[in-house]
C-alpha cells in the first residue's frame, strides 16, 4: 500500500481545536515568559528588547534584607494558613457533608462567601473590625484574614471528595469492630486526605500571593512579599521585581510538586 493512501484527510475541526489550545496556552504562559525575560535582562529599567542575560536582579533580590524578611514572613504566614485552613476547611466539609445540619445549603454558601466578596472589601472590613476591636494589626490577625479567604478552597476540594465517598466503606469498618474514632482515622481521613491537601495547596498559594487583604493588615517593617513588591514598584521599576516574581512562581511550583510527591495529587487532577 502506498504511503499516500494512508494519509489522513485534513481535518479542519481538529486543526481549529489545536490552534485554539495553542492560543490559550500562549495567553496563559506569555506573562511568565515576559517576566523571565525582564528578570534576566541587565538594563536598569524594564525595557524591551532585552540586551543580554545576567543574574544581577536575582542578586539584588536575595541581597536585600527588605525582600528577604518579606519572603520569610510570607512563607511563614502561608504555612500557618495552610495548616489552619486544612483543619478548619476539612472539619467544615465533614460537618456539611455528614452532619445532617439544618440549612446546609445556606451554610455552604456562607462558608464559600469569602470567594465571592472582592478581597479588597474583605481587607477593608477586617481592618476596621480589628481597629474597633482594638487588636491592632498583629501577624496572627493577618494569618486569620488569609485563612478566612483560603478556607473555601479546602472546603471545595474536600466536599468534592466526600460527594463521591461510599459511606458503606465506613459502615463496613464499623461492622468489623472499629469505633467511630478509629473509623475516622483509619478509613475516612486517609480517603479524603488527597482532597484536603489539594485544597491546602490552593490555600498556601492564595496566602502567599495575597495582596488586597494584606495591604490593609500589614504594618511597616513587617510586610508580606506582595506588599513589599508593590511599594518597591512605586519608586523603582527594575528587574528586581521580575526576579522576585520568578522566585515566587518557583516557590509556589515547588510547593505543588512537593505535595504531589508526598501524597500524590494526581488522583485529584480530575477535580
Amino acid at each position: 500500500m502506498s504511503a499516500a493512501a494512508n494519509r489522513k484527510p485534513f481535518d479542519a475541526g481538529r486543526a481549529a481545536y489545536l490552534a485554539l489550545n495553542i492560543v490559550l496556552l500562549a495567553f496563559l504562559l506569555a506573562p511568565i515568559a515576559i517576566v523571565i525575560v525582564f528578570a534576566l535582562n541587565p538594563t536598569p529599567f524594564i525595557s524591551f528588547p532585552p540586551v543580554g542575560v545576567s543574574l544581577r536582579w536575582f542578586e539584588k533580590f536575595f541581597a536585600s534584607s527588605d525582600f528577604m524578611n518579606a519572603l520569610w514572613l510570607s512563607l511563614w504566614v502561608a504555612a500557618c494558613v495552610l495548616v489552619l485552613s486544612v483543619v478548619i476547611g476539612g472539619a467544615c466539609a465533614l460537618a456539611l457533608a455528614r452532619g445532617n445540619l439544618p440549612g446546609r445549603t445556606f451554610l455552604t454558601a456562607f462558608f464559600m462567601s469569602p470567594l465571592m466578596l472582592p478581597a479588597i472589601l474583605t481587607g477593608l472590613a477586617l481592618f476596621q473590625s480589628y481597629l474597633l476591636a482594638g487588636i491592632g494589626r498583629p501577624i496572627w490577625g493577618l494569618i486569620m484574614a488569609h485563612t478566612l479567604i483560603a478556607v473555601p478552597y479546602v472546603l471545595r476540594t474536600t466536599l468534592a471528595v466526600l460527594h463521591n465517598f461510599d459511606h458503606r466503606i465506613e459502615e463496613a469498618a464499623a461492622a468489623l469492630g472499629a469505633s467511630p474514632a478509629r473509623v475516622f482515622f483509619e478509613v475516612t481521613l486517609p480517603l479524603i486526605q488527597p482532597g484536603v491537601f489539594a485544597g491546602g495547596v490552593f490555600a498556601f498559594i492564595v496566602s502567599f500571593d495575597q495582596f488586597p487583604v494584606s495591604l490593609f493588615l500589614v504594618v511597616p517593617k513587617s510586610e508580606t512579599l506582595p506588599v513589599v513588591l508593590y511599594n518597591y514598584m512605586k519608586f523603582d521599576l527594575d528587574g528586581a521585581i521580575a526576579a522576585a516574581s520568578m522566585v515566587s512562581i518557583l516557590l509556589a511550583l515547588s510547593v505543588v510538586l512537593a505535595m504531589e510527591r508526598l501524597i500524590g495529587l494526581k488522583a485529584y487532577v480530575k477535580l
Binding site: 461510599d166 459502615e171 463496613a172 461492622a175 468489623l176
Partner: peptide, 19 residues
C-alpha cells in the same frame, strides 16, 4: 453499637477499603 455487635457484613458494593 455496631462496632461491638460482632457481626460480619457483606455489601453489594463490597465496600472494600480502596487504600
Amino acid at each position: 453499637p455496631v462496632h461491638r455487635r460482632d457481626m460480619g457484613m457483606v455489601f453489594q458494593s463490597y465496600a472494600l477499603f480502596p487504600h
